[in-house]
């Protein structure tokens, strides 16, 4: 086990956030619910996906925007038959998802994109749910409570939480403070709030202090482990 850097927490205890990817193996188990950042694979921590594939853990519940492509991001876990259920907004770019779903080998819960991110946000922000007009009058409302507010109908959508969040930061300091470039932000900062354990894959790893506090998008206090990702 190689622990590269040591930081002290507020109680003066040593913190070892920066780890080798193999150090994470103890954390990751069959049947876990895992949120994974990315939009069609952009902003997805591919090295952490590599680890899940290498460990071949099974029966995962994966929560993310979409199932990406067969050779990218969450799509690779689908193709490798490691997923029991996905909660996503779109599966159209990965034909394997639809195939496994039709064969009864994969449960697919489709949630409208704006609803999905709000459900995760609710989970991470301590809310009991969200009321959204999206999906009223469609299959999405089936089995859900509807609430009328000021003569408008809303669906009560329940929060989502996870055991693990796998996020990908463009610039990450050794405390876990994270900055996302461009459209790679997408689900990443929201899922970082909604999981028991948060692992960041750093594209660029920098020293503490190199990211101005004003531009930190995910505060390092939320981050449990950091791995070096590279491009």
């Amino acid at each position: 086990m190689m622990k590269l850097e040591k930081y002290l927490n507020s109680r003066g205890e040593e913190m070892n956030k920066l780890v080798c990817i193999d150090d994470l193996k103890n954390l990751i188990k069959d049947g876990m619910t895992i949120m994974i950042g990315g939009f069609l694979g952009f902003g997805t921590p591919e090295k952490l996906i590599d680890l899940l594939i290498q460990m071949n853990i099974k029966d995962l519940i994966i929560i993310g925007n979409d199932t990406s492509f067969i050779d990218k991001g969450i799509g690779r876990l689908i193709v490798n038959n490691q997923v029991k259920k996905v909660i996503v907004s779109h599966i159209g770019t990965n034909p394997e998802t639809g195939k496994l779903m039709n064969e009864g080998k994969l449960e697919v819960e489709l949630s409208p994109q704006g609803t999905l991110i709000e459900r995760i946000r609710a989970g991470g922000f301590g809310l009991g749910g969200v009321l959204t007009p999206t999906g009223v009058g469609t299959l999405v409302e089936e089995g859900k409570e509807k609430i009328n507010i000021s003569d408008k109908e809303y669906i009560l959508e329940l929060p989502l939480k996870a055991d693990l969040a796998l996020i990908r930061g463009s610039i990450v300091d050794k405390f876990g403070n994270t900055f996302y470039k461009g459209i790679t932000k997408n689900f990443n900062p929201i899922i970082a709030m909604a999981a028991n354990t948060v692992i960041v894959e750093a594209q660029d790893l920098v020293e503490v202090g190199e990211i101005e506090p004003e531009v930190v998008m995910t505060p390092g206090v939320l981050v449990d482990y950091i791995i070096e990702g590279g491009e």
Binding site: P112, G114, T115
Partner: peptide, 12 residues
Amino acid sequence: IPGMGGAMDLVV
């Protein structure tokens, strides 16, 4: 069944 993606939110 590709999924609704962002379409349901957009039209609402």
